[in-house]
Design a protein around this nucleic acid. Structure first.
Length: 462
RNA sequence: GGCGCCGUACCCAAGUGGUUAAGGGAGAGGUCUGCAAAACCUUUAUGCAUCGGUUCGAAUCCGAUCGGCGCCUCCA
């Protein structure tokens, strides 16, 4: 039974799709004007874990992610570069999915670029105008939040509590109330991209795209809507206001938000010099799997403090898993079965993830099993059938968390390496340890680690 | 000012009322080894920011204090 913390109620609730079979999930995607940073990626990794977990429950999943390919930054930079916004945004969109791929984040089922849904957005704005939830002011259209009594429910912010006048955009001074937000922006000049609409030429405000795309692809009530906590207000609050004003139905059943990542205890910011993209980390030769491991090791609802020490520790943890799989794979086992070895592991792993995606607990289950099996291997009580079962368990762990080192890195036939090892063992037999150590160093230089065990010399790739 | 989250060992971190407070990293001891830089095992909090309260029983609930972080119309 999967429990998720719903921001709407602030408490854990048992999740099941509304129609009993298909989960309709929408996750806020990137604004493609630069490369994703590790904070962004933490959120996408959390959503990926959720996605994989929902699949494992036997439900079908329809997962939609938007690409925001129109906003002020994109427009300004595209104009500077003398490109149209699609041309400007395209490489960043491609880079985003490349980064996701490196972190083993699965691709959503449907990807919706905002600029492909302009007619749907125009339609929504028109319906909000017709129903009196929106009003024109100047050449732009605004949402009248005084018409929507539930405004502030998600973020627990009373309208009166909003600090008035803190940051009001220069072109929005004509609003009826400072907290009203823009649905449709009149172009400031001819260079800005704009579309014709019955209520005037312009471009969509930020929030309307998600309402339009989510409802177009998933219907008027979604099962799950995810994003980072910073999106609770105003973005998701505004989505609710827009969508529910038009449909009269609940827009989202479960709002699930991922906490932020900090770097060395501080908010990541370009001005602080602690701002990292995935590319920055890969340039420093960190393993993408270790980065994913670090992001998975802290449950999504807790702030994650990213540190270099933490990343090194994550890499070491991964090596422990790899070493165990190597040992299990190369061990000489007798026939039979010893089922109590892993009797509780699969259920404990499942329960951990069912408990609001407690990935830290799930990893603890994995390491508990490793320690138990290592001891059992030393005592020679692991049998052939156990190996198969335990490998199956790890296969499941990998399908769910995607943090298990690939077996190809562990198991490999290579005659050249095996003959070097044979030479080394011959040297050892003759007690020519200088030659033996030389060969060991040669192998190490090629990324091959050797281990002398009671069962003979074993090797694996680093 | 308003709303909210958090503080568990050297570091990361699970646990949110009931046996000896998970797990990972690091350190220390040991096993194996020609050697080990590998691997494996064991070990490391009478203690859960502090102080008070509730309770037969508190890391867990309540209150206060201290400290950190977030949101309050750019934001994952």
């Amino acid at each position: 039974m999967l429990k998720l913390t719903n921001t709407l109620t602030g408490s854990q609730e048992v999740f099941a799709p509304l129609d009993g079979s298909t989960v309709r999930m929408y996750t806020c995607g990137p604004t493609v004007h630069n490369h994703a940073h590790i904070g962004n990626l933490r959120t996408y990794v959390f959503e990926d874990i959720l996605r994989r977990h929902l699949h494992s429950k036997g439900w079908a999943l329809k997962h939609v992610m938007n690409i925001t390919d129109i906003d002020d930054k994109i427009i300004n930079r595209a104009i500077e570069a003398g490109q149209d916004i699609k041309t400007y945004a395209e490489p960043y969109t491609r880079a985003f999915f490349e980064d996701c791929g490196k972190l083993r984040i699965e691709r959503p089922d449907i990807i919706t670029p905002a600029t492909d849904y302009i007619p749907e957005m125009i339609d929504l704005v028109q319906r909000l105008l017709d129903a009196g939830y929106a009003y024109p002011e100047g050449d732009s259209i605004y949402y009248r939040i005084s018409r929507f009594p539930n405004y502030g429910r998600l973020s627990r912010l009373d309208r009166r509590e909003l600090k008035i006048g803190a940051r009001i955009d220069a072109d929005e001074y004509e609003k009826e109330e400072p907290s009203d937000f823009v649905l449709w922006k009149a172009p400031k000049n001819e260079k800005e991209p704009h579309w014709q609409a019955p209520f005037g030429a312009g471009r969509p405000g930020w929030h309307i795209e998600c309402s339009a795309m989510a409802m177009k692809q998933l219907g008027e009530t979604l099962d799950i809507h995810c994003g980072g906590v910073d999106n609770i207000f105003p973005h998701h609050e505004n989505e609710i206001a827009q969508s529910e004003a038009v449909t009269g139905k609940p827009f989202v059943r479960f709002w699930v938000h991922g906490e932020h990542l900090l770097v060395e205890g501080e908010k990541m910011a370009k001005s602080k010099g602690n701002f990292y993209t995935l590319r920055d980390l890969l340039e420093r030769e960190y393993d993408p799997l270790a980065i994913r491991y670090l992001l998975v090791s802290v449950p999504y609802r807790k702030q994650l403090n990213f540190t270099w020490d933490g990343l090194v520790a994550a890499q070491r943890s991964l090596e422990r898993i790899k070493e165990f799989l190597f040992r299990l794979n190369t061990a000489r086992l007798g026939p039979g079965s010893n089922p109590q070895l892993d009797a509780e592991a699969a259920a404990a792993f499942e329960n951990a993830l069912d408990d609001d995606l407690n990935t830290a607990q799930a990893l603890a289950v994995v390491f508990d099993l490793i320690r138990k099996c290592n001891t059992a291997l030393s005592d020679a009580v692991v049998k052939e059938d156990d190996r198969k079962r335990i490998f199956r368990f790890f296969q499941n762990v990998d399908e769910r968390l995607a943090i298990v080192p690939p077996m190809e890195a562990i198991v490999q036939g290579d005659e050249q390496i095996e003959s070097l090892i044979a030479n080394r063992n011959e040297a050892r037999r003759k007690r020519d340890f200088a030659s033996a150590d030389l060969i060991r160093q040669q192998l190490l230089d090629r990324g091959v680690v050797i281990e002398d065990t009671r069962e003979g010399t074993k090797w694996r790739r680093k």
